[in-house]
Design a protein around this nucleic acid. Structure first.
Lengths: 153, 153
DNA sequence: CGAGAATAGTTGAACGCTCAACCAAAACGC
DNA sequence: GCGTTTTGGTTGAGCGTTCAACTATTCTCG
């Protein structure tokens, strides 16, 4: 059966391209800043953040993957690099012999603490400073609706 | 001089993380679909789109880079691959001997035409179907403000 | 005009991500 | 209990991006 494409009208087209350009530019800017100032990509920073917030600064690999919205494979590669940098260590999971825990080292915590102010400042300058309080609220609702929608079975 | 970090308040934190998760998930979903259905990443699809819209389906490399929000290096590598696939060809620029034109081949156009309906459907399903018309409008204004802000000198 | 600066584009190495294949341990089902 | 399936995680190859270095042309202006 032939299904007609629901093309985008000019408004939708404009919205989609603006969103594409803005989100890409924002991410690239933050990524570049973090790479320059802390020597790590944003994805790695996020891993350190999640570990730092976890009880005992340790998480199962699968939980960490879930928390950072990453594939298991990506996380596995990333943790390998973070381990080589001395910022993360792996431990066997005591309750499941398949499992691995990733834990943030003192070094990793210190590196994160050093990187955080600059990065947060970047998020504020590049994102929040451009938006009114009402827009921030709108963006939150939009993003949550979107994330919800994408996670539907 | 010591500058106090302007940390994110809980609302901002929530907004930032939601935006991060949503935009990443959206891009990954569309990228995966395009890779599966058309054998190219979203970035390459965008290059073909821009070329298809240009007069005579050809653009200077630097204009193409600008239009797709890409670095010259990235574009150079990308066009090399697209050329190998037979979707794009390079030509010398007649007015500037440093310059190169990228032009969309018939094959490239056909491939784009075949990929477009599926991709547009994906954008609609994953993005617009999740939002009210008011939210679409809000997202456009937010994205344009953001892009503007990021381009300020 | 001519020297220096700016612009256009390419290249190669290093890095991060994806995908598919894989191994090991746990959970399930009869 | 034991084969099957599912889950947790890793691995290596291939691809796309970044960054810095580089060549070649054009622009600037004293």
């Amino acid at each position: 059966m032939v299904v007609m494409t629901r093309w985008l009208d000019p408004d939708e087209q404009r919205t989609w391209r603006a969103f594409l350009a803005a989100s890409r530019a924002l991410m690239e800017t933050l990524d570049r800043e973090l790479q320059r100032d802390a020597g790590m990509p944003h994805a790695y920073y996020e891993i350190l953040v999640r570990l730092s917030e976890a009880p005992q600064r340790r998480l199962r690999m699968s939980e960490l993957a879930e928390a950072t919205g990453s594939s298991r494979s990506r996380l596995s590669h990333a943790v390998a690099r973070l381990e080589a940098a001395g910022w993360v260590r792996r431990e066997d999971c005591p309750t499941d012999r398949r499992g691995q825990l990733a834990l943030l080292t003192e070094d990793g915590f210190a590196t994160l603490a050093a990187a955080a102010p600059g990065h947060v400042e970047g998020v504020r300058r590049h994102l929040f400073d451009a938006l009114s309080p009402a827009q921030v609220d709108q963006l939150r609702r939009i993003s949550e609706a979107l994330a919800d929608h994408l996670n539907r079975p």
